[in-house]
Simulated scan of single mutants.
Amino acid sequence: MTSVTVLGLGPMGHALATAFTAAGHPTTVWNRTPEKGDDLNAIVADTATEAITASPLVVVCVLNHQVARSLLDTDALKGRTLVNFTGGSPRQARAMATWAAEHDIGYIDGVIMATPAAIGGPEAALFYSGSGDAYETHRPALAALGENANYLGEDPGRAAAFDASLQDLFWTAMSGVVHTFALAAAENIGPSDIAGHAKAMLGFFSDMIDQVARQVAAGHFPGDDSTITSAAAAMDHILGTIRANDLDNGVLSAARAEMQRAIDAGYGSEGVGRLAAL
């Protein structure tokens, strides 16, 4: 069993350490407030450097990359593998990988698409990118965090890019969900009256995602089912209702402006998938 170090015991870091210990990996942890490790079956180190030197595999999960860099002793990490679960951008991940290579540190950037409670189970989706050799070496230990692991390639920024793209979908959709209830309430429609219909509408999104993916891959955007021009007209009707109820229209107005740019560029008769390729 590979020895593992976990730096950072916030809710996610604590869940990571718990999963490693549950799988039988000797685990050393460090946190600025050491009592957060008292309930773990792990060694609580006095310093981050002490924790790093305890294991060939070092996992860091803290607030941001700046905090992570401040904790990481390059001399102690030399020759070890660092798995960085600290959230950040693809550019930050690539910069961290460059820094690691300069100090002879194996680097894997990691993204967790799950809640802390899901860590260690089949629901936890994990994305990894960076050193393929380092990933293969430590894949058995990382398997303790969840069965749904995806290694995305040598580009260390690729996992963060997947995260940013998927989170873009999630938060844009969530904005639409909460705005649906706000607009419905303004028109005296109760949440329980519209929730089921909203779920039914979202049900066909899976097929739409596949359709747009095929069109983007082929570079061909037929408007057989719906065109950008017709979608823009529908948006105008919706925006009129939103404005009449004095609700915020920023998100839909931005989407409508994107449609207009496509129409002005001569793509009005094509399908909305064209917007992904402008």
Rank of each mutant, 00 (worst) to 15 (best):
M12V: 07
D104L: 03
R158C: 06
G157S: 12
A232T: 09
S89I: 10
A134W: 02
T86P: 09
G13L: 01
A159Q: 01
G273D: 11
A42P: 01
P116H: 05
E154I: 13
N245G: 04
V272K: 01
A161C: 06
M12L: 10
A93D: 11
G37M: 03
A144V: 07
A100T: 00
M259T: 11
L7R: 01
T28D: 07
D39W: 00
G8I: 00
A173T: 12
E35I: 11
Q167C: 13
G132R: 14
L63A: 13
T74G: 06
N188T: 01
S253C: 00
L82G: 02
V4A: 10
S131G: 14
P122F: 00
D39G: 07
E136W: 00
K36T: 08
L72R: 01
A213L: 09
I119K: 03
G8Q: 00
V62P: 02
Q211M: 11
A95E: 15
T33H: 03
H65R: 08
A51P: 08
I108F: 04
A134Q: 14
T137H: 09
V58R: 08
M174Y: 12
I228N: 09
I119A: 03
I228G: 11
G190C: 06
S131C: 11
T137F: 01
S230T: 14
I209Q: 06
A232P: 02
T49S: 14
A164P: 00
S129K: 10
T98D: 14
S165R: 04
G176M: 02
A257V: 00
R94C: 04
V29G: 02
S175E: 04
G88I: 04
A125Q: 15
A164G: 05
S175V: 02
A101E: 14
E258C: 03
L7C: 03
V216F: 09
V272H: 10
P116F: 04
L142Q: 05
H103F: 00
N31D: 08
L169I: 15
G10A: 02
H25N: 03
M1R: 11
I52Q: 15
A255R: 01
V272L: 14
A149N: 09
G271D: 11
R274Q: 05
G88M: 08
A117K: 13
L275T: 07
A144K: 06
M1G: 10
A276N: 12
T27F: 04
E154Y: 09
G37N: 04
A213N: 10
A184K: 07
Q167L: 15
M201A: 13
V212Y: 14
